[in-house]
Design a protein around this nucleic acid. Sequence first.
DNA 1: AGCCCGGCTTTAT
DNA 2: AATAAAGCCGGGC
Length: 122
Amino acid sequence: MQQHTDALILQVVAAVPAGRVASYGQIARLAGLGRAARRVAAALRRANSQPPPPWHRVLRSDGRLGLPVGSAGWHEQIQRLRSEGVAVIDGRVDLRQYLWSGGDGDQSDRDDLDSLLWRLQE
DNA sequence: AGCCCGGCTTTAT
DNA sequence: AATAAAGCCGGGC
């Protein structure tokens, strides 16, 4: 049941390229879940898939992390992002610069996104 | 059915 | 720019 949607969510998250980030809401839409942003969060929290999904590339719509400030996960997420070259300043990421295919950066990601959506379409 | 609770989002102060 | 209040969508009880 939820298994299916969870898997779907994880696939979309897995499609976010390293060095880029996406918002919960964005993932939800791409997965065809409408505004179920919180559902995405739930899926990530419970995610126990074998190669763990790049959960750290998912942020809130304002560029701040979803996890409680100062928590272990919060620190870990920042560390992971930085190791991918994403600047985290004061617990925040500049979405205008790192958001995945949201604005108008390089469109090189676009192809990946489209092909992914087609594959998920069935 | 009804209520509460989330790694959220948007809108209004 | 920061905070508060209302939405939204599923899940668990």
